[in-house]
Each structure stands twice: as C-alpha cells, then as structure tokens.
C-alpha cells in the first residue's frame, strides 16, 4: 500500500498526539497543583538519605539500616531476582515431575497429579502464601527442637527458617549452623518468608507447568510410539528417545511464557513481608511519603525486567523453534 502521509497525517498522527499531550498536560497540571496544596516537592534526593529499616534477606550483598534508600531498593531488586530464579527452578522441576506423573500409565499416580493440579490452580496464590506462612510460623518447632535432617547436624528447619552449611567459593571456607542460646549461628540462613514464598509459589506455578508438560506429551501422535514399539524398542527407550525429545520442543515456548508471570507473582511477597522490591519500596514510600517517585521507580524496574525477560524468551523461542526438516 502506498504511503499517503499527507492524507493521514492528521487522523493517524497529529490527532492522537494532540489528545495524548492534552491528557498528560491535564494530569501533570493536576499533579503539580495537588503537590503544591499539600506542600510536597518532587525529587529523588531522598534516595541518598539513610533508610533506617532492616532487611532480613540479603543473599550475597551486605546492607545496614544506616545505608541509603537506594541501597535498600537495590537489595530489594536482588531479592526479587533471586527469589524468582529459585521459584522458576523449583516450579519447572516439580511441574515436569507432575506432568510426567499425569502422563504415566499408573492410574493412581496420574489421578494424584491431576488432583494436585486442580486443587492448587484453583486457589489464589496469595491465600496459599498466607496459609503456608501461618503454618510455618506457628506449627514448626522452635530452634531448640528443630528438625535435624538425616541426623547430620548440618541442616536444620525450625520456625525461624532453614539453616544450611555454607561453602565460601572465594576463600574455600566452610561453616555450619550451631545452636547457641535460642538460635543458630553460622552457615547460611533462609528466613521463613523466603521459604514460604519459594515453596508456595513453586507449588502454584508447578500446577500450571504440569498442564503444559502434559499437553506437550499428549501432542506427540500415537503413531510415533507404535513405530518405536514395532522397531523393538523398550518402553523406557520409547519414552526417553522418541516421545520426550519431541515433546520438549513443544513444551519449551509455553513453559518460558510462564516465567514472566512467575516474576510478577513473586511481588506477592509483600503479603507475607518478604523484602522484595515492591515491599521494600512500599516501606520507603510509607516512611518518606514520596508516592510518585517510589511508584515510578517500581514501574521503571518492572518494565525493564519484562523487557529483558522478553528478549531472553525470544532468544530461547528461536533456539528451540520446531524445525520441520
């Protein structure tokens, strides 16, 4: 179609531009008059001020409550990213296991997996998180009576979280948790909030991923299996050499589409008080009252995250594209 810019210049470009600028002008006029009325001023200078609140989970970074808001927000961002990676890993693993169970010829197992998926998909994630958090805080034993996994005195689970040994990769150090007084010291510590977030979100996302895996496995035509059997392959080889490799190519694109929603769902951490980006910024917002600045930071970071993840997903989708040779 020939480009007739002169004819459509007004309706396609000038009119929407005019409307949009009028709209945003009105919004910003309102914003500034509102701010003037309330005696507030815009500005990001608060980012360098002292944050004054503690953050429980820091993964590899250091943070003190005397450090700046910017530092606290960055810790929140790293928490979001790390917890999302953990959730993606565990949910993919569990989702594949459940999907394979649903595909299996053992009726009891497929029944169990389909029950699981139907129950966990139909309950809001935030209520599951509330529930698990309540269970973990109130029904797990205290530090003195904590679960000692395998009797090794290395892994402990109690109502203050999970304690595991830590290996220093740079200095080859090794430390393991030891009970001193009412708590464990040394090793790595995962707070109950992180455990509940990763555990609950993984269970929830695994239910969806199991559906995807099942659909991918069912998409392989039955003739493939029959052909493999007629070649004399064992059942095990039929599955691992014929069915599974083909279905992986079908499974990967919708599976990776789940990841952005997992990253977005990790912001529900704010419900149970895990210091992810949203909840740290929300704390900062409540302390400083800088609503516009804080929420525009949130918008910026989440848009960047979704942009990065969509580039990454496009790369993966290209890599796993189903080529019909």
């Amino acid at each position: 179609m020939p480009c007739r810019l002169d004819k459509h210049l007004f309706t396609h470009y000038a009119l929407p531009f005019l409307l949009f600028s009028l709209f945003s002008l009105a919004l910003f006029y309102n914003l500034f008059s509102n701010l003037e009325n309330q005696g507030l001023r815009l500005g990001f200078s608060f980012l360098t001020q002292e944050a004054g609140f503690e953050i429980g989970d820091k993964f590899f970074f250091s943070y003190e409550s005397t450090q700046s808001y910017l530092h606290a927000f960055l810790i929140g961002l790293s928490n979001t990213v790390m917890s999302s990676i953990l959730i993606i890993f565990f949910s993919t693993l569990l989702g594949f296991i459940l999907g394979l169970l649903r595909f299996s010829s053992l009726k009891l197992y497929s029944l169990f997996a389909s029950f699981y998926s139907n129950i966990f998909r139909n309950i809001p994630l935030v209520i599951q998180l509330y529930f698990f958090y309540h269970i973990l805080i109130n029904y797990l034993p205290s530090a003195r009576e904590s679960y000692n996994f395998f009797g090794l005195d290395l892994f402990f689970l109690n109502n203050r979280g999970l304690f595991i040994p830590r290996f220093g990769l740079t200095d080859f150090s090794f430390s393991y948790p030891v009970l001193e007084g009412f708590n464990y010291f040394g090793g790595s510590h995962f707070t109950p909030e992180l455990i509940v977030l990763v555990f609950g979100s993984s269970l929830y996302a695994a239910a969806f991923i199991s559906e995807i895996v099942l659909a991918g496995l069912k998409a392989i035509p039955g003739g493939q299996l029959e052909a493999a059997r007629s070649l004399g392959m064992s059942e095990r080889n039929c599955f691992s050499k014929i069915i599974f490799p083909q279905s992986v190519k079908i499974i990967i694109p919708p599976l990776t589409n789940q990841w952005p929603s997992i990253i977005k769902n990790s912001s529900l951490a704010v419900a149970i008080g895990y210091p992810d980006l949203l909840s740290v910024v929300n704390t900062g917002l409540n302390q400083t009252g800088k609503a516009i600045e804080c929420l525009s930071l949130i918008i910026l970071v989440y848009l960047l995250l979704s942009l990065v993840s969509s580039f990454f997903l496009n790369y993966i989708a290209k890599k796993f594209q189903y080529k019909n040779e």
Partner: peptide, 19 residues
C-alpha cells in the same frame, strides 16, 4: 509488564494525586 499488585498500589496511592 507490571505486576497486578503494583497497579493496585498505584491506583490506591498514586492516582489521587493525578486527579
């Protein structure tokens, strides 16, 4: 790109300033 909870925060905290 936004999580829904972020949109809800925006609607409850930020939107009144734009009216």
């Amino acid at each position: 790109g936004m999580p829904l909870i972020g949109l809800l925060f925006m609607a409850s905290v930020m939107l009144p300033l734009f009216l």
